[in-house]
Amino acid sequence: MARDIARAPMDGAITDVPGIRVGHFTETRRPTGCTVVLAEEGATAGVDVRGAAPGTRETDLLDPANLVDKVHAVLLSGGSAFGLDAAGGVMRWLEERGIGFQAGPACVPIVPAAVLFDLSLGDHRIRPDAAAGYAACEAASAMPPAMGSVGAGTGATVGKLFGQERAMKGGIGTASMRIGGITLGAIVAVNAVGDVLDPDTGEIVAGARDPEGRRPIGAMAGVLRGELPPRMQPGMATTIGVVATDAVLTKAQCRRLAGAAHDGLARSIDPIHTLHDGDTLFALATGRSGVPGNMMALGAIVPHVVAAAVLRGVRAARGMEPGPPAASELG
């Protein structure tokens, strides 16, 4: 049954959710970029931040006890904390179109954001900025977004438990599923300390390689054999993403949905939520279906959709210079 859920119905994209558009900006000077998830009509939102080294913006606003109940975009970016600058470009793009929270004479777009660490690839002084965020909005579409080494997934790597030199390429992936008259989708930029696993088979799709770099060895298997990880700096990884539905949800329900979505990371990445990851997932509800969300069903299905997005992103990735090889290149 689990295999049937995880495989067949999730070859779509987060843009299958009515009211959601996605755009990538991919930097050409080094492996980095950003991805924007637009909800221009406004979407109820929640967030769940895990791991010990997050880089985020406007997450406190999403607490159900706080005032603003709609967001207009979520930004996922490379560049570590510097990449948060890209959210300013998303705000400018939305403001130019009169989209935002009316605050006196101003229309203030609400743009939460999260970043991942990719500064070890190429010139770290090149990172997404406001112009990159604006360009991602210009590129946004309701068509299925590209996956792999694009947008926020451009500089993503996985399997870094034994160092970047033994890692493999990560990427950004998306998936969706339709159940009970509603659509649920996810987009995830996979940049993890841990290995990426197929939860159906236990197969290592991408992860820490042997010292010769020929094949994935299984990071946790290495630890259990007594190969201890070297010292790492906090914030060297982080997987970030967005889940979205057209169901009608409250802010509190969105936060619960974001929490359940992390189970999808736990299904497909091992280890997850480490000292060196700042894993952050947002949840958006556009309400376009008019159907109240069944939280039991959504909470049960969302881990499968997130895990499918993780696998699709890593399998679509390609190696680039500088950087480690992709799963498709090891054969």
Rank of each mutant, 00 (worst) to 15 (best):
M1H: 05
A2S: 11
R3N: 13
I5P: 01
M10H: 04
A13C: 13
V17A: 05
V17Q: 08
F25Q: 05
T26A: 04
T32S: 08
T32F: 01
E41M: 10
T44I: 12
V47C: 10
A52G: 14
A52W: 09
A53Y: 00
P54D: 13
G55R: 06
R57E: 02
E58C: 03
T59P: 01
L61D: 11
D63Y: 00
A65R: 03
V68L: 09
A73N: 13
V74T: 03
L75I: 02
S77H: 08
S77K: 05
L84C: 06
A87T: 01
G88P: 12
G88H: 15
G89Q: 01
V90P: 15
W93G: 10
L94H: 03
L94Q: 10
E95A: 14
A103R: 00
P105K: 00
P109Y: 10
P109A: 11
P109E: 11
I110L: 13
I110S: 12
V111E: 14
P112L: 03
A113Q: 06
L119D: 06
I126W: 07
D129P: 11
C137S: 10
E138H: 07
A139S: 10
A140K: 05
P145N: 07
G148C: 04
S149R: 00
G151P: 13
G159Y: 13
K160A: 14
L161T: 07
G163P: 07
E165G: 09
G170C: 08
M177A: 00
I179A: 04
I179H: 12
I179V: 11
G180R: 10
G181P: 08
A192S: 15
D195M: 06
V196T: 13
D200G: 09
T201H: 00
E203A: 12
A208K: 03
R209G: 09
D210Y: 15
G213K: 06
I217N: 00
A221C: 04
A221K: 11
E227V: 02
M232R: 13
P234K: 15
M236K: 03
T239Q: 05
V243G: 06
A244Y: 10
D246K: 04
D246P: 02
D246V: 04
A252W: 00
Q253R: 06
L257A: 01
A260S: 05
H262M: 05
L265G: 13
A266T: 14
R267E: 11
R267P: 04
T274G: 14
T274R: 11
D277T: 02
D277Y: 00
G278A: 13
A283G: 00
R288S: 09
G290I: 04
H304I: 01
G313C: 02
R315V: 04
G319L: 08
G319C: 07
M320Q: 12
P322T: 07
P324A: 07
A327S: 11
S328P: 04
E329Y: 10
G331F: 13
